[in-house]
Computed example of a mutant assay.
Amino acid sequence: MMSFSFPLCCSLLVVFCGFWGFISSYKHLLNTLLSLEFLMLGIFWMLSLQSTNVGSEVYFSLFFLTLAACEGALGLSLLVLIVRSHGNDQFMKMNLLEC
Score class of each variant (00 low, 15 high):
residue 14 V to A: 02
residue 95 N to R: 02
residue 44 F to S: 15
residue 52 T to Y: 06
residue 30 L to I: 09
residue 53 N to K: 06
residue 74 L to H: 03
residue 64 F to L: 12
residue 92 M to S: 08
residue 66 T to S: 14
residue 98 E to P: 12
residue 11 S to V: 01
residue 98 E to S: 13
residue 71 E to I: 06
residue 84 R to Q: 07
residue 21 G to N: 02
residue 7 P to D: 05
residue 96 L to N: 08
residue 26 Y to W: 11
residue 46 M to Y: 15
residue 96 L to D: 04
residue 82 I to S: 05
residue 17 C to A: 14
residue 96 L to E: 08
residue 39 L to A: 08
residue 40 M to C: 13
residue 10 C to R: 03
residue 82 I to P: 08
residue 13 L to Q: 01
residue 7 P to H: 10
residue 83 V to C: 05
residue 13 L to F: 13
residue 7 P to R: 02
residue 16 F to D: 06
residue 42 G to N: 08
residue 3 S to Y: 02
residue 51 S to Q: 13
residue 74 L to V: 05
residue 21 G to P: 08
residue 95 N to T: 10
residue 25 S to W: 00
residue 35 S to Q: 09
residue 30 L to N: 11
residue 23 I to D: 01
residue 70 C to M: 15
residue 54 V to A: 11
residue 53 N to S: 15
residue 65 L to V: 12
residue 34 L to G: 11
residue 47 L to A: 11
residue 27 K to W: 05
residue 53 N to I: 06
residue 41 L to N: 00
residue 3 S to P: 14
residue 94 M to K: 14
residue 73 A to G: 15
residue 29 L to W: 09
residue 30 L to Q: 13
residue 44 F to N: 11
residue 5 S to H: 09
residue 18 G to V: 07
residue 24 S to P: 00
residue 19 F to M: 08
residue 96 L to Y: 11
residue 95 N to W: 04
residue 68 A to V: 15
residue 81 L to P: 03
residue 24 S to V: 05
residue 29 L to D: 06
residue 44 F to W: 15
residue 19 F to D: 07
residue 3 S to M: 05
residue 77 S to R: 03
residue 53 N to D: 13
residue 17 C to T: 10
residue 43 I to C: 09
residue 84 R to S: 07
residue 48 S to A: 13
residue 36 L to V: 10
residue 38 F to S: 11
residue 80 V to P: 00
residue 34 L to C: 14
residue 32 T to D: 03
residue 19 F to H: 03
residue 39 L to V: 04
residue 61 S to T: 14
residue 47 L to R: 00
residue 72 G to C: 08
residue 21 G to C: 12
residue 28 H to G: 02
residue 67 L to Q: 14
residue 8 L to H: 06
residue 73 A to C: 07
residue 84 R to W: 11
residue 19 F to E: 02
residue 66 T to V: 05
residue 27 K to N: 07
residue 7 P to C: 07
residue 85 S to Q: 12
residue 49 L to F: 14
residue 17 C to I: 05
residue 32 T to G: 06
residue 36 L to Q: 15
residue 80 V to H: 08
residue 55 G to A: 13
residue 78 L to R: 00
residue 20 W to K: 01
residue 86 H to G: 05
residue 27 K to Y: 11
residue 32 T to Y: 10
residue 66 T to F: 14
residue 57 E to P: 11
residue 77 S to M: 10
residue 68 A to I: 07
residue 62 L to C: 07
residue 41 L to C: 10
residue 14 V to H: 04
residue 25 S to D: 08
residue 58 V to G: 14
residue 58 V to P: 15
residue 93 K to A: 12
residue 9 C to Y: 09
residue 69 A to D: 04
residue 95 N to C: 03
residue 19 F to G: 12
residue 98 E to M: 05
residue 17 C to N: 01
residue 26 Y to H: 13
residue 43 I to A: 10
residue 13 L to E: 00
residue 80 V to A: 11
